[in-house]
């Protein structure tokens, strides 16, 4: 009986601790949501009422409007380019043996290790010396390089999980290498490629540190505009945008979990 009691006590201690840690992880998001609908200019808890005024201000602030559009342009180009290059690279690494493969792999995986401010600073200098300044081309190139490792890894995992007999079967049935690629390999890689593209899009949309270096007023993305605003004003306009971003990503995560299984995307397969 006492053994069972000890076991119960241990379990409730463990789950209590887990719950507390999860509260610590999620409380900032709840505070943001709460602040975003507060009517007051000063931060206050609990909020004294309910209002959408900060949302109105966020939507009508021209810097945010421009930054939002800039961000969409950059993300659209960067994530699509990243998908193309990353998929090609994953296929290259999986299928071809060539001189310098290890070096190419190391270089393209390195943005995972290199601090974003280093990458951003490097592209700032490169853009300046090439006469491109802080143009869209430079911003997009930076985002492509930063998101590439995530896309290529996702596609690479899908490629590894592909039964090689499927491509052989298609070949045996008379499909030329191009037909095999078009009718068997690519369709079967689609889930991995969609996952990789989504990942690239989210990372590009929310990337801040490197973007701070490579964007100018004309090309700045939403996180950079938010950073500038936070440094100048203290009202909860940013809370409104943040709340929208939190709701958006949570919805996306729920969707990804429902459709693809988050555990599978993150490669945590629970036995």
């Amino acid at each position: 009986m006492s053994a069972r009691l000890a076991r119960g006590l241990r379990a409730s201690l463990f789950w209590g601790a887990v719950a507390l840690i999860l509260v610590y992880m999620t409380i900032p998001a709840f505070v943001v949501l709460m602040t975003s609908v507060s009517p007051s200019e000063l931060l206050e808890f609990p909020p004294s009422g309910f209002s959408f005024r900060w949302y109105e201000r966020a939507f009508s602030y021209p810097d945010f409007q421009n930054a939002f559009v800039n961000g969409l342009i950059v993300t659209a180009f960067a994530s699509s380019l990243s998908l193309l290059i990353g998929s090609a690279f994953a296929y290259l690494v999986d299928r071809y043996v060539f001189a310098g493969r290890a070096a190419l792999e190391a270089v393209l995986a390195s943005p995972l290790i290199i601090p974003h401010f280093t990458t951003g600073f490097g592209f700032l200098l490169l853009g300046a010396d090439l006469g491109l300044g802080q143009s869209y081309a430079v911003v997009i190139a930076t985002h492509v390089v930063l998101t590439l490792p995530f896309v290529s890894r996702t596609v690479y995992v899908s490629l590894r999980n592909l039964d090689p007999a499927l491509e052989r079967a298609a070949t045996n049935l008379g499909a030329s290498p191009f037909e095999v690629l078009k009718r068997v390999t690519l369709p079967l890689l689609r889930p991995g490629m969609v996952g990789g593209w989504l990942l690239a899009a989210i990372l590009s949309l929310t990337e801040f540190t490197a973007s701070l270096y490579v964007t100018a007023q004309r090309t700045q993305t939403l996180p950079v505009a938010m950073y500038t605003y936070v440094r100048e004003y203290t009202d909860p306009t940013i809370a409104a945008i943040s709340a929208l971003l939190i709701i958006f990503t949570t919805a996306l995560m729920l969707l990804a979990n429902r459709c693809l299984g988050l555990r599978r995307i993150l490669a945590i397969d629970v036995h």
């Binding site: 999860l22 992880m25 999620t26 900032p28 998001a29 943001v32 989210i202 949309l205 929310t206 990337e207 801040f208 540190t209 996180p223 938010m226 950073y227 936070v230 945008i241 943040s242 971003l245 939190i246 990503t249 949570t250 996306l252 995560m253 729920l254 979990n257 988050l262 993150l266």
Partner: peptide, 13 residues
């Protein structure tokens, strides 16, 4: 969901 979502909201938020 609770543990992983914060990863994707971006560092500024």
């Amino acid at each position: 969901l609770l543990a992983v979502t914060p990863l994707f909201t971006g560092e500024i938020v």
